[in-house]
Design a protein around this nucleic acid. Structure first.
Lengths: 178, 178
DNA sequence: ACTCTCATGTAAGGAGTTACATGATTGA
DNA sequence: TCAATCATGTAACTCCTTACATGAGAGT
């Protein structure tokens, strides 16, 4: 369901696009929020066409199909945003490792935490770079006051910083015992 | 893969258990970190038995099967903890809503954020209650210095608090424009 | 007797991943 | 001509969800 919503959102925000374009958009703009590869996107666009949420607006070179969102699609997107409770199932590999960490001896646990910290630092750097780019480039034509994707990026950066702080504290706490 | 790891972790931490017990453990102790229902757990235990990671230690009343982790299972768990990079795919419904929020007009966006805030507050209360219980009850026999699940609970609480702060700031930011 | 909790499973379907497969166009 | 990128799809498989199905034991 959420893939469908993400596609409708991208079509609304960036206008008509091909499956290929949308795949690229997933790799770049939405990557830190939702992921999907072309093998998932193409069939989903076909189903959405059948359901009347999008239409093939034009067909270009190399079999390129340009999809556009329909009024039904817009309604579906709005309904989800306004009505859907985002109670996604909790499935967090980092947290699972944290949960099970006491099963290791302190030395190994420390090593795992250090690796985890490095990963989180790397991710934070990526997100902050994205933020810097967004805030240095000219403002695109506005959809609403807040710029597209910025709220989510802010959330992502805050959560990543929180995870980093947690990792540091956990390292300190375990280090004291090792 | 991670379900398997979670099961091995629970069997290590709490000792031998039945599929039923493990299902309960998922509902309680690991719920904020990983989720799985009995219809996923029973077949997985069967596969793990076939793979030699667990064994049926005993069969009790009502067809109850008690599983125990094997040395191979322990090795598998340890290898995952030490060696697995927890780069789970980013799929976050809250962040997706945040991402798409600027597509709504400010009034509706505010309503969505308020609902989100309520949900996060509720979740935070749950986690803090869990924390309080853990820190008031007597210390169970130690596996390592840090108590089982506490690191993960700390992480969960911090992240939930961060999300709450973000929601408040986002509400303030959009409210200024509405 | 009845109901509740214990206890185990299967089946159908949706969502997601990885790998396979094909062909057009552009630019060096 | 050769490689890269554009562009679309399918197939097989794992993982997860929801619903169906069954029966034993414990307590009232």
């Amino acid at each position: 369901m959420s893939l469908r919503i993400a596609l409708l959102g991208l079509l609304t925000a960036y206008g008509s696009a091909s499956g290929y374009d949308l795949t690229k958009a997933f790799e770049k703009s939405v990557a830190h929020v939702w992921q999907a590869g072309h093998s998932q996107i193409y069939p989903e666009l076909a189903k959405m066409t059948a359901d009347g949420l999008v239409t093939v607006e034009a067909e270009g070179a190399r079999g390129r199909k340009i999809y556009a969102i329909t009024p039904e699609g817009r309604a579906e997107l709005r309904a989800w945003l306004v009505g859907h409770d985002p109670t996604g199932p909790a499935r967090n590999e980092v947290a699972l490792q944290a949960f099970l960490l006491p099963l290791l001896d302190p030395g190994e646990a420390l090593a795992v935490l250090e690796r985890l910290k490095a990963y989180v630092e790397h991710k934070l750097a990526e997100l902050e770079a994205l933020w810097a780019i967004k805030h240095s480039s000219p403002v695109p034509e506005g959809t609403t006051g807040v710029r597209f994707g910025n709220l989510a990026l802010d959330l992502g950066i805050r959560q990543t910083r929180t995870t980093l702080a947690w990792a540091n504290d956990a390292i300190a706490a375990i280090g004291r015992r090792a």
